[in-house]
Design a binder for these strands. Structure first.
Lengths: 141, 141
DNA sequence: TATTGTTATACTCTATAACTATA
DNA sequence: TATAGTTATAGAGTATAACAATA
């Protein structure tokens, strides 16, 4: 079973997620929080429902997530019209995300270096193809 | 972000898990149930606490899991001493696992074929190294 | 009519604590 | 003293349904 792609994928992903979660505790963020902040920074005035589609989060679950980020003064909502709010980072949010980005890029570099040199160039295209083809299979079923 | 190993790892693993869960519904098993059945078949008279260590399941959570498998007549407990029970598959359990094994091996073959040929030989050793090194990092911290 | 956002709630999975009994 | 198994419970995380208001 140890040589099965599905099993190894699961084990590697779980281990990586667990390590990253641990490292993000220093900025008091979960992985999903960091993902949302990155998305807001890269797409100023993005609305909640757009984030929910991109990250596969139910809109109902976006509410407490964004409320927490807002209460911590990381994110601000600016009314676009009477229905939607554009999201953007506060000054404090930008500062926290800068710290977070350092953690993320260091973590990513560590992950890459753990792949033996002769396999390193193959891991990204292999995972990318695996992801896309598996997503497609799910959509077809 | 789409080229980050950690991100791709997560996406590919989630997609694969979701697809396998869906396929296992035909035998009314979750992935964890199938893993436990495989472990019992490969290690007759294994005890619950051993499974809990191997699959990283809290012993408290093994109780309802094994009870369900026992109530469905897939698994039997045979007393080893006054404290432990050896687990093994019933005839019915063996039959269901045979079906399950077909689903698993077909799924695994599909996954492998989704990796482009030029990267295929690299994915298993790459994931294995990533898993082990990341587990080690977690243990050290 | 579809989208956006929200509330309330339920379900699953996982985690913790306290406990009994046996190796 | 450590291990095996159990109970009860708490906490995330995620999912569904129903709803109001606006594009």
């Amino acid at each position: 079973m140890d040589s099965w792609v599905g099993y190894l994928l699961q084990r590697a992903a779980t281990a990586a997620k667990s390590e990253l979660s641990h490292q993000l505790r220093s900025v008091d963020l979960r992985i999903v929080d960091a993902s949302v902040l990155l998305l807001i920074e890269g797409n100023p005035d993005i609305i909640a429902s757009k984030i929910s589609k991109l990250l596969d989060i139910k809109t109902a679950n976006m509410v407490p997530l964004l409320r927490a980020l807002e209460e911590r003064d990381l994110v601000e909502r600016v009314p676009i019209n009477k229905k939607s709010h554009g999201l953007h980072l506060t000054k404090h949010g930008e500062a926290v995300l800068a710290q977070t980005r350092q953690i993320l890029s260091r973590f990513e570099a560590d992950l890459e270096m753990r792949v033996p040199e002769e396999h390193r160039a193959h891991i990204v295209p292999a995972l990318e193809a695996l992801w896309r083809a598996t997503e497609d299979a799910r959509r077809e079923s």
